[in-house]
Design a binder for these strands. Structure first.
Lengths: 370, 370
DNA sequence: CTGAAAGCGCTTACAG
DNA sequence: CTGAAAGCGCTTACAG
């Protein structure tokens, strides 16, 4: 690892100018075949690896899309040996995967930077200046800093609480999803004593889901608590804790609605460990539609949001704005589906309640899921 | 989004030189408080966002760790509506997560670039030149290109087949894991007609696991096929296809060992759909130790590899080599555990067979898992 | 504590 | 088709 070769070294060895080296490497058709070959040989011999920084600086673009990912989970302790991964948001994971994938399809690399909280200035100094556009994945965002950054590069907010004028955003129809699910729980199963296990308190996803929970049950004529039974951090450990508390705080509700799948997973596990049968003794539902929920025991009834698509759309908005900086900002709301599996009390044959169609006021459609 | 402000603009507005702007922003203590304030005000007023490229170019470092992720899955068709995510390797996902996390802990951002196959030159041009060090996640690697790149920046190979001299690598004890699992299947369950569902043919993980499968059963005195029943791409669809073929090709084996968990998941699902009971009619095992396997029906007996740790160690090796470029290369082999759940025929209480201890020739230790 | 100046390694009009 | 030169936006010895 001696001093790395540069265009100058390659040029010298090939007996051409640095401009020609640049062209031979970048625009092969712009130079004579003979020249091209000489440059290629020199580059190979010198183990030349072009500097991305220098190139990007000269070109005034980076080809990178940034993902700023704020972990908002608490430092929760999980009692399960294998559950370390459950500390992580499987939901964000999927969204990030959607971003990576779409970035790749559109010729960008993804620069992922995560942090535990938005330390002031970090966003600006660490990534904003090194990417062409930036996706913010967070429930709570550093509004002021973003306002400045969005003046310089396209920014898209995913699942964020606040919106910033001129900044695109992507979110899902939380309320509709919960509403459809509650209707199912009432109409099909006749439940009437629900409980809600919340997520990160300042998360708009968590807030919207709980409010929809309240509204839906209330409108159906049932009294429900005006706060979540417990608010957690969207991890399985929240579910574990919630289940424990549920078991020691009087009669069980007939259905436990969780702010997300991972929380529901924790509830399921802890209930099972205590011999509480789901759905016989109590029904449990989630939100997200993680693959994981198809394999739980019993399989989890949930609301599925299009996670990969959320990421893909975020990238699409970014790239579009890169092409048309002045386009008005767009707030995308993606539809969700209710995935009926067994944890709500339904038989093994899963059903799918399409959110799309309902929102268009058509008949509830139920189609076989597998 | 007018022309973005630069140090020159900030300097002009603050009435100082660009050197002072740089210092005020980067080394606050090196300038007078008054100067610092003037610069900060100017920067804020101008919505100044420093250029990462220019900074990195001047500094000769990027603060970024690259992850080059080669997808090697085939374009398989899955019959399950929700299974799109199963097309993705949940294993790589975890490793990447481990990388992101450790990168962050060590003050680096992670640049993730993925591709479907190693197009020549892409690696060199697209990432190698823009990161301080590079992790290659792939079963099969572009050896020549990497040899060149590793001359310039630290490279670490994860789960790769070939090793390159002078390049660090991380892999797991595939053989030991399979061996321990086979011993369990024979000693505890008395199975004798196993079948192996393979992974990507050129993957060393897939190859090592199959070879260990052969060796272990053979050494125990049982005849086993000398090729996998089927070789796939490590996705659930491979498992689905394998299960179909198994069902139509004569008597069922007594145990189906899969090259990884996602494949096993596909087998489980398809068997279940056809009314084949696991483990009563046939046992099934996986490899990876994904969380997902704890929730399948029945829960999956598998070999668990420390995926987050694999990623973390990859980063550690990279950062260490950054500090000591001449250190001899190290090939890390991480231990695995056998996670006994129910799909092998064991009762609900899960067991853990530690790979570590066995490899040190101590007694097989069995500890409760939850 | 601050400034002038060189340098980081490319790309890209502009000439020829 | 090729070269000389300016420019991309910072950082960092070196003086003062």
């Amino acid at each position: 690892m001696s001093r790395a070769a540069t265009v100058y070294d390659v040029a010298a060895r090939a007996g051409v100018s640095i401009a020609t080296v640049s062209r031979a490497l970048r625009l092969p058709d712009a130079v004579r075949p003979e020249t091209r070959r000489r440059v290629a040989d020199a580059a190979r011999a010198l183990h030349y690896v072009p500097s991305g920084n220098a190139r990007d600086l000269a070109r005034q673009r980076t080809g990178m899309l940034g993902v700023w990912f704020i972990e908002d989970r608490a430092e929760a302790v999980v009692d399960d040996d294998a559950a370390e991964s459950l500390q992580w948001s499987l939901y964000w994971d999927q969204v990030i995967r959607g971003i990576e994938r779409e970035s790749w399809r559109r010729g960008f690399a993804a620069l992922i930077a995560s942090t535990r909280s938005a330390r002031a200035g970090e966003l600006t100094n660490e990534i904003a200046g090194r990417v062409d556009a930036l996706a913010i994945l967070a429930h709570d965002i550093p509004t002021d800093e973003l306002a400045v950054i969005s003046e310089r590069i396209p920014v898209v907010l995913v699942a964020a609480r606040h919106s910033i004028s001129g900044v695109d955003s992507v979110r899902v129809a939380n309320s509709q999803g919960i509403k459809l699910l509650v209707e199912h729980l009432i109409d099909v199963h006749g439940y009437r004593r629900p409980v809600f296990i919340g997520g990160v308190p300042h998360s708009s996803d968590a807030v919207e889901r709980f409010q929809a929970f309240r509204r839906s049950w209330t409108e159906a004529g049932y009294a429900v608590p005006d706060t979540p039974f417990l608010s957690g951090d969207f991890t399985a450990s929240t579910g574990v804790v919630a289940a424990e508390q549920l078991l020691t705080s009087g009669p069980l509700p007939d259905v436990v609605m969780c702010a997300n799948d991972q929380t529901a997973l924790g509830v399921l596990r802890r209930f099972r460990r205590h011999g509480v049968r789901v759905p016989e003794d109590v029904a449990v539902t989630g939100f997200d539609g993680l693959e994981l929920g198809a394999g739980t025991n019993p399989p989890l009834t949930t609301v599925r949001q299009p996670m990969l698509q959320i990421g893909a759309i975020a990238v699409k908005l970014l790239v579009e704005r890169l092409a048309a900086p002045e386009r008005p900002s767009v707030a995308t709301m993606l539809p969700v589906d209710v995935v009926i599996r067994e944890s709500c009390g339904c038989p093994a044959q899963p059903l799918l309640i399409k959110g799309m169609e309902l929102s268009a006021r058509s008949t509830t459609s139920r189609s076989t899921n597998r």
